[in-house]
Design a protein around this nucleic acid. Structure first.
Lengths: 199, 199
DNA sequence: CTTTTCGCAGTTCACTTGACAAGCGAAGGC
DNA sequence: GCCTTCGCTTGTCAAGTGAACTGCGAAAAG
């Protein structure tokens, strides 16, 4: 016995999850609302009903990812207990790598949107990227480090080095015959990146 | 006074350049042949005439980028003269970063295609990524280094860390107010990445 | 029990997409 | 100089595309 409100919320969430998959896989334009509806086991008309336009569906879907990220990554970083500051920094970086390994959609979306300078990018930066940078990175990851002008370079070095092999998993499999989702690979990559950034 | 063969080659090249822009900006599916035609100042029918299908146009366009890359990057790396092996390695990495800064399409295409495991990805790996990796990276960049199992991790760390801020220029501008195409930024980033990878 | 609400599927509409076919007109072979 | 070749434009087609507008049936409200 599900009430109407529950039912509504459940289908909305089903559509959002399908949209997250489709948008991060294909990009905004190439992902069709009919494809998303099919992945969510419903029809295209329902998407219009719940989200009015494709643009609002995108915002809701992407917003969902980032909220999840900020929650999960935030609590993970807070749970690290380590006295040696350098080893602490390394473990924070390892946690970040483990995270992007489990959620490659984030990096895909960042690259996909960061290429353009449209309304969606502006919305993404203002609503999620800037707050996430300020909370998670500046006040969490780099907390205490006064690296000043080097900050942006280290920021993108970490994001790029840590996320790339997981974002392009199919290519890694084809080119190296390795399975980037396997725990061995994730841990090895996390350790390499951590030791590169904190020697 | 242009001969027919010259004219033909010139328009083909104009279309290919427009296709390179469009494909790396929008991805394969979202880049329409009509848009590409408009960028090249012609009509859509002409693309079908010269390349038959969108897929063959993509192969020709992408192939062109990689050929340019292999030539340019290869000669750049060969021109470095430096006795100290560690400083040599750093300078090689700096050259690589300068290169991706000037050609962000490469990284965009890699991420765009590396997400999928379709016929295009297989073609890309077999025709360009594997040869390029073997010639430029294994026998050029990492030449002599026996890093064994670490090779793939260092490979993606360099590619990701070195290329990301240039691939997502618009985001860098919005988020940090920096201009990643400026020489200062490129050199600073090249130096940071070089010193991270070769301490 | 009656009436209203509303989550949802089906259909339609204007428009874009890749591919193709027909025709034009000038360059090039004879 | 005539006629063939061929680079190129235009028109057309079927298959999608996003958005809107139905109508129904069951849950909720009275």
């Amino acid at each position: 016995m599900t009430t109407r409100a529950e039912q509504r919320e459940e289908t909305r969430e089903r559509i959002l999850e399908a949209a997250r998959d489709a948008f991060s896989e294909l990009g905004f334009k190439a992902a069709s609302t009919r494809d998303i509806a099919a992945r969510a086991n419903t029809t295209q008309g329902l998407i219009t009903y719940h989200f009015r336009t494709k643009d609002e569906l995108w915002k809701a879907a992407v917003g969902g990812i980032f909220e999840l990220l900020e929650r999960k990554l935030g609590t993970r970083l807070a749970s690290i207990e380590e006295k040696d500051p350098r080893e602490f920094a390394r473990e924070v970086i390892r946690e970040y790598v483990r995270f992007t390994a489990a959620h490659p959609e984030l990096f895909r979306l960042m690259v996909e949107q960061g290429k353009h300078d449209d309304a969606r990018t502006r919305w993404l930066v203002k609503t999620h990227l800037r707050p996430m940078y300020e909370n998670v990175f500046r006040d969490g990851l780099w907390a205490g480090k006064r690296n000043g002008a080097l900050a942006p370079h280290l920021h993108y070095a970490l994001a790029g080095a840590g996320s790339l092999p997981f974002a392009i998993g199919p290519e890694v499999r084809r080119l190296w015959g390795l399975e980037p989702s396997q725990k061995d690979f994730v841990e090895a990559h996390a350790d390499v990146v951590a030791k590169l950034l904190v020697p």
